[in-house]
Simulated scan of single mutants.
Amino acid sequence: MSEISKAIEKRDNGPAAVVEKYRESLALVMPSHLQQRVGAWIRNTQGLLRRDPKLMEAAQNDVGQFIAVLMDAGRLGLEPGTEQYYLVPRWSKKKRCTEVTGVRGYQGEIELMYRAGAVSSVIVEVVYSNDQFQFRPGRDERPIHDIDWDAEDRGQLRLAYAYAVMKDGATSKVVVLNKGHIAKARAKSDSADKDWSPWNTDEEAMWLKTAAHRLAKWVPTSAEYMREQIRAQAVVDSEQRPEPLPVTIPAPAAGTVDDDYDDSPIDAEFVDD
């Protein structure tokens, strides 16, 4: 096989081409808000591969794993290669090569909370050592966080916190994480010591993601929540609907109907046209 033929075969069977081949499958798992722009979603993913040689190499090493990661991002309705959903080349000890893994980012966590329809706003922030921060559980409804925006240096990362304001105005549980909490979360990542890991390329974003992920335990993050709310409301409405009123139709004058006329009461339900 000539070099040109090999290049054509590699192009036609490479990760970018395989993504296009899975267009229909990806569209099937995507939420409705993405199904109208699945073409742009795929082109953006292909662009990521062209711009990042390490990502392309990892995708080529295991195309099936790469497609599985994209299916996960599509199912969640998140944009791969963004702070919603990172695409990370990760070393696989078993395969002895890099492969693509998906890491949900803090913006992805927040997006899922909004999409569930239960919250009106989500606040996720980091606190630096030169900031002023106060939160007393049981006494403060929400944290008080003062920042000197004129300061050239806010210091070192100190805390991360997250909470949501529900649509009825109530405040969700407030999650506050210190360096110890973040260190434990980082230790669970088997790629945290790699230079390409988000823990090293965008540390603040990973602090935010960790706080948002903890908040997700206390806030609905699935469209199933909204469907359940609609179903429950339908049940309540049906239980509150008035019972049909019995209607008695008086017997007509003698001689106007057959002798089989039944003058017993019947149940009728009034229906508006």
Score class of each variant (00 low, 15 high):
Thr210Met: 04
Pro198Lys: 04
Trp207Val: 04
Glu224Ser: 12
Trp207Gly: 05
Ala212Tyr: 01
Pro198Ile: 07
Met206Asn: 00
Leu208Trp: 06
Asn200Met: 06
Lys194Ile: 02
Pro198His: 10
Val235Thr: 15
Lys209Tyr: 03
Thr221Tyr: 06
Asn200Cys: 09
Ala212Gly: 00
Ala212Val: 04
Glu228Pro: 09
Tyr225Lys: 02
Val219Asp: 08
Ser197Glu: 02
Val219Pro: 03
Gln229Ile: 12
Gln229Tyr: 07
Ala223Met: 07
Asp195Pro: 01
Thr201Leu: 13
Glu204Leu: 03
Glu204Thr: 12
Ala216Arg: 02
Glu224Tyr: 10
Leu215Pro: 00
Asp195Ala: 14
Asp195Gln: 15
Leu208Gly: 07
Ser222Trp: 09
Thr201Asp: 13
Ala216Lys: 04
Val219Gln: 00
Met206Asp: 00
Arg231Ser: 07
Asp202Thr: 10
Leu215Tyr: 09
Ser197Asp: 13
Ala211Val: 08
Ala216Gln: 06
Glu203Arg: 12
Thr221Arg: 06
Asp202Leu: 08
Asp195Tyr: 15
Ala234Cys: 12
Val235Asp: 12
Glu228Cys: 05
Val235Asn: 08
Ala223Leu: 03
Ala232Glu: 11
Pro198Gln: 14
Pro220Asp: 01
Met206Gly: 08
Ala211Asn: 05
Leu208Cys: 13
Lys194Cys: 11
Glu204Ser: 05
Lys209His: 01
Ile230Arg: 11
Ile230Gly: 03
Asp202Glu: 07
Val235Leu: 14
Asp202Phe: 03
Thr210Asn: 03
Ala205Asp: 11
Glu228His: 07
Lys194Gly: 02
Ala223Ser: 12
Glu203Asp: 12
Ser222Ala: 09
Thr210Val: 13
